[in-house]
Amino acid sequence: RSVMTEEYKVPDGMVGFIIGRGGEQISRIQQESGCKIQIAPDSGGLPERSCMLTGTPESVQSAKRLLDQIVE
């Protein structure tokens, strides 16, 4: 099973929602998708923050879907 890492951008203002209280939302996304998510510590003043998604292609797709649901 191939593991890939893909960069994915999320709106900087939504990072708090994505991480959730005490990190529980991001933990849930990682468990549900099976994908490891690393969010950049800051956006460098840009409107979007970079996330690194690491996992199988299916888990990366799944994580993107879950992130999109939060961001919308």
Rank of each mutant, 00 (worst) to 15 (best):
G44V: 09
G23E: 13
T54V: 09
M52C: 14
R28H: 12
T5L: 05
S27Q: 15
E48V: 11
S33P: 00
E58L: 07
P57H: 04
C51V: 14
C35Q: 00
G22L: 05
K36C: 11
Q25L: 05
S43M: 06
G55C: 00
E7R: 15
S59C: 07
P47D: 13
V10T: 02
K64Q: 05
T5S: 13
M14E: 04
Q69F: 06
I37R: 00
V60S: 01
P41R: 11
T5G: 05
E24F: 13
S43A: 12
K64T: 08
M14G: 06
R28P: 01
E48D: 08
E24D: 08
L53S: 00
A63P: 00
A63Y: 00
E58S: 10
V60M: 06
G23V: 03
P11T: 04
G55Q: 00
S50F: 03
D12N: 15
L46T: 13
F17R: 15
F17L: 13
Q31N: 13
K64N: 02
C51E: 00
G16E: 14
F17G: 15
E7A: 07
Q69H: 10
Q61W: 08
M14A: 13
Q31I: 09
G34W: 02
G20M: 03
G20H: 07
L46M: 11
Q38F: 11
R65T: 12
I19E: 15
V3E: 14
V71D: 05
G44N: 12
T5P: 02
F17P: 14
I39V: 11
M14H: 04
M4A: 07
F17K: 15
P57K: 10
A63T: 02
S2Y: 06
G13L: 07
V10Y: 03
E32L: 06
V71G: 08
E72N: 05
I39W: 05
R1N: 15
V10E: 01
G45W: 03
D42F: 06
L67N: 01
E6D: 05
G45P: 07
M4N: 11
G13Y: 14
V3M: 15
I29Q: 00
R21V: 05
R49Y: 07
Q25F: 02
V71R: 09
R49W: 02
K9Y: 07
L53W: 00
T54M: 14
S2G: 14
A63R: 00
S2T: 14
G55W: 00
G13H: 09
I70Q: 12
Q61T: 14
Q30W: 15
R1S: 05
S43I: 12
T5Y: 06
R65M: 12
G55H: 01
D68E: 12
P41M: 08
T54Y: 10
S2M: 15
M4S: 04
I18V: 11
V3N: 14
A40Y: 06
G22D: 14
V71F: 08
Y8P: 00
P47C: 08
E24I: 10
D68T: 11
P47K: 14
P41I: 03
S62D: 11
C51L: 12
D42C: 12
Q25N: 05
M52H: 11
R1C: 13
K9V: 05
L67Q: 01
G23N: 09
P47A: 13
I70D: 04
G55E: 00
Y8V: 08
S50H: 05
F17N: 15
V10D: 01
T5C: 07
T54E: 11
E48C: 04
S27E: 14
M4W: 03
D12W: 03
F17H: 14
M4Y: 13
I39F: 15
A40M: 11
S2R: 14
I19V: 14
E58D: 15
K64V: 06
Q25P: 04
A63M: 02
S2A: 11
M4T: 08
V15C: 04
Q38V: 14
I29G: 00
M52D: 04
T5M: 13
I26K: 06
L53V: 04
I18P: 02
P11S: 05
Q31E: 15
Y8T: 04
V60P: 00
R21Q: 15
A63I: 02
P47N: 13
G34Y: 02
Q25Y: 04
D12L: 08
E24A: 11
E72W: 13
L66P: 01
Q31H: 08
L67K: 01
L46W: 04
L53C: 02
